[in-house]
Design a protein around this nucleic acid. Structure first.
Length: 441
RNA sequence: GGAGGCGUCGCAUAGUGGCCUAGUGCGCCCGCCUGCUAAGCGGGUUGAGGAUAAAACCUCUCGCGGGUUCAAAUCCCGCCGCCUCCGCCA
């Protein structure tokens, strides 16, 4: 959720952000009007409520005086009872009015909230305008191998995986249906090696390693921003009113929900290891071969809580850690700055690292790092003591990928040899215990 | 799945319908006093929202959400969380 104060103080900035995202800028005025209504109805309710409280207190005092007089057999007991009764009648009358005004104010508040939720995070200056195809390539690292010059046709990751005894899609489908798979033998070991390397790097960089819940309650899911926009993407467990999370970002964002955290020593950084579940509802027919797009995979995710002023610098740091990981698997990749219309609603800016996939002749996403500024934390109630004064203020949250099952695709394809073997990148060898993966059939 | 217990300010506790504006102790912060420290004394110390130039001020907040009542920490209903025991279980 965006900051209503920003919207009041600088509505043009929010309008511009909406336009860049290809969304309705008119909602800004609707929100300002709803805000006005909420504040005036709240004022009406609160002042009458104050009066009601005062009168009600008089009732208490009058009742007390009457009871004492009655006990003592005082002659004015009857009179006191009448006084108490009159006060009670007045309070009862006020009570009805207060209830109506409160309902009014609640409704105005709910309407404001409903409108506010529809607005995506205000984008950071410099984010490209437009949709999915309007990204800007910031940098291209490494050069794709020339397989023609090497004299052989590269196999795709599934063909390689099957020869290596690393991937079994058929049995995956037998058990879980389409987009399920088994990682077997060196495949299973390779995934563990990638994820362990990611955890080791993160831990060395000062992240707290975490293994997180993969189910979350609706309010956490909503707070992290995964219900409004991604509702179709998410598995929901009807019987228990829980969601299967598509990333440990959900659990790491929820970790400090409704807390006041201490950032005086710098950002709090967590590296979450988890299974991830995605319905892939909107992608029928896309990437149906192999493990590029699957319903379940594993991921190591960086998550950072920092001060808002530091968020952009922290975003650069997360990107640098992603680059460090990508360098370790020695594949060509590029970095793109995602266009505004392709950002999730919590993100104010997003950088993806895309690895070269030789058999597709394309770069495919391996990592994604988003700066959510205060958008996620505001919904989740994660604040810090305001260092410049009294009270609290909302913190910024950021996330970024360090390794996933999909990385196997890039590793297998880019490091394959004419005989169907795959050379293991140097940095990965200590985690895998093998220098070369050899075909078994 | 069944039975029971519990949830109050950072922590510990008091409070079972109206002098509760939630008391007390500890911790923490500010000040006083004091060779230093400790003790002592005085004050402050949940969070959210509204109002304001800023305040004073007002509303809400006793796990969460409803309800009863003129009035709810207190009574009723639902939910969440934690604990104990029984049952079941890869």
């Amino acid at each position: 959720m965006i900051d209503i104060k920003l919207l009041r103080d600088d509505p043009d900035r929010v309008r511009a952000s909406q336009l860049a995202r290809g969304e309705d800028p008119g909602i800004v005025d609707a929100i300002l009007a709803a805000d006005e209504r909420r504040r005036s109805s709240l004022g009406e309710f609160e002042s009458l409520r104050a009066e009601q409280k005062a009168v009600s207190k008089d009732v208490g005092a009058a009742m007390g005086a009457f009871q004492r007089a009655k006990k003592a057999g005082a002659p004015d007991a009857e009179h006191l009872e009448a006084v108490a009764h009159a006060a009670r009648t007045k309070a009862a009358h006020l009570s009805d009015q207060v209830k109506a005004l409160e309902a009014n104010a609640d409704e105005a508040g709910a309407e404001l909230e409903r409108l506010l939720r529809k607005v995506g995070n205000v984008i950071i200056e410099g984010v490209p305008t437009g949709g999915e195809d309007d990204y800007v390539v910031l940098e291209t690292i490494g050069t794709p191998r020339d397989f023609a010059a090497e004299g052989f046709e590269p196999l795709d990751h599934l063909a390689l995986g099957e020869r290596l005894g690393a991937i079994d899609m058929e049995r995956g489908a037998k058990v879980g249906g389409a987009r399920f798979y088994y990682l077997t033998g060196v495949g299973a070991l390779l995934e563990l090696a990638v994820l362990n390397m990611a955890m080791a790097q993160a831990t060395a960089a000062g992240f707290t390693p975490m293994i997180t819940p993969t189910m979350a309650r609706p309010e956490i899911m909503l707070g992290a921003g995964f219900i409004d926009a991604h509702a179709d993407e998410v598995y929901r467990l009807e019987a228990d009113d829980l969601y299967l999370t598509g990333t440990s970002e959900v659990a790491l964002a929820g970790y400090h929900a409704d807390e006041i955290i201490d950032l005086s020593a710098g950002p709090k950084r967590y590296a979450g290891w988890s299974a991830c579940y995605r319905r892939e509802a909107g992608s029928h027919g896309k990437d149906t071969r192999g493990i590029i797009r699957v319903h379940q995979f594993h991921k190591v995710e960086m998550f950072s809580y920092c001060r808002p002023a530091e968020a952009e610098a922290e975003h650069e740091r997360l990107l640098a850690w992603e680059r460090e990981m990508l360098a370790k698997i020695e594949v060509p990749y590029r970095i793109i700055d995602t266009a505004a219309g392709d950002l999730g609603s919590p993100a104010a800016r997003k950088f993806d690292c895309e690895a070269w996939v030789p058999t597709q002749g394309k770069y495919r996403e391996l990592t994604s790092t988003s700066n959510c500024t205060t958008y996620q934390a505001r919904r989740l109630g994660t604040r810090e003591r305001d260092p410049n004064g009294s009270g609290t203020r909302t913190v910024a949250t950021l996330n970024g990928t360090l390794g996933t099952t999909r990385w196997l695709v890039a590793i297998l394809e880019n490091h394959q040899q004419p005989d169907g073997s795959v050379v293991v990148p140097q940095a990965l060898r200590p985690f895998l215990g093998l220098d070369v993966l050899e075909p078994i059939a």
